[in-house]
């Protein structure tokens, strides 16, 4: 996360993304969606997220945009103007509109989460938004276990095979949930052993500062949201 946007405060990014998303969901105007998409694509290189990661997290968005596009082309309402012809099909404005809007709704949150480190998010929520540290840190600790669960699942399948029972997917997934909860219980004990939830004050070891640059991120989000609203009314 060693890029300009990557270093910005998590709360600032959260606020900016919220503003833009809230504005975008109010309109179906392709121009508004295009503006958001354009701005975010321009911002993407400054987010410091490697291309591979962007792709790995982002493909579902593209896929669902393609899906809604296709759906509307084939089955959507026929009262909207035709804007293009594609492989013998009439592409109407509504298909383009829905697909663009889906991208515009998805992108702000996508970019924000991709450029935020979960630890920073928890810290920032605790420091700036006064979220209860018990809940923020508790959730963070549980989140750390997510990648370990894949390993756990592999081991559960192995164990069933070693014991001569068939490893059905359903029963293995249930086994995984049980194992995850068990890990959670141990983790909670380990956290209490190190003084978590002892009552009283708690410090935060990592610096979280909300500086001018962070305010700028919020301001940019606000500006983009305002543009979207303006475009919405400009067309009607």
């Amino acid at each position: 996360m060693n890029s300009w946007l990557g270093r910005r405060d998590a709360t600032a990014k959260l606020l900016a993304a919220l503003l833009v998303t809230a504005a975008v969901v109010t309109t179906l105007e392709p121009a508004a969606s295009l503006t958001v998409i354009g701005v975010l694509v321009l911002v993407m290189p400054f987010a410091g997220v490697p291309l591979g990661v962007l792709w790995r997290r982002g493909w579902p968005i593209l896929l669902s945009a393609a899906g809604i596009f296709l759906f509307t082309v084939l089955l959507g309402a026929r009262d909207s103007p035709v804007v293009a012809h594609l492989a013998g099909l009439e592409v109407r404005e509504n298909a383009v509109g829905y697909a663009l809007r889906l991208l515009a709704v998805g992108l702000p949150g996508f970019l924000m989460f991709a450029s935020i480190d979960p630890t920073d998010l928890a810290d920032s929520l605790v420091v700036h938004l006064r979220v209860s540290p018990r809940f923020a840190i508790g959730a963070l600790a549980a989140f750390r276990l997510a990648p370990l669960l894949a390993d756990e699942y592999r081991l559960i399948r192995l164990a069933r095979r070693a014991r001569g029972t068939r490893a059905g997917i359903g029963s293995s997934l249930f086994g995984l949930l049980v194992a995850a909860i068990r890990r959670g219980i141990r983790l909670a004990t380990a956290m209490e052993a190190r003084g978590f939830d002892r009552g009283g004050a708690r410090t935060v070891a990592r610096v979280t500062r909300f500086g001018w640059a962070d305010a700028l991120v919020v301001a940019l989000g606000l500006a983009l949201a305002a543009t979207v609203i303006l475009l919405k009314f400009a067309q009607t």
Binding site: G138, A142, F143, L145, A180, I181, R183, L187, A188, E192
Partner: peptide, 24 residues
């Protein structure tokens, strides 16, 4: 809420978030 309540609720959430990903 005790610490186990918080952590186990979060773990259930994380496990289902993975299910959500597939479901999405």
């Amino acid at each position: 809420w005790r610490t186990v309540d918080i952590v186990v609720a979060s773990i259930i959430a994380v496990a289902f978030a993975a299910v959500f990903y597939a479901w999405n």
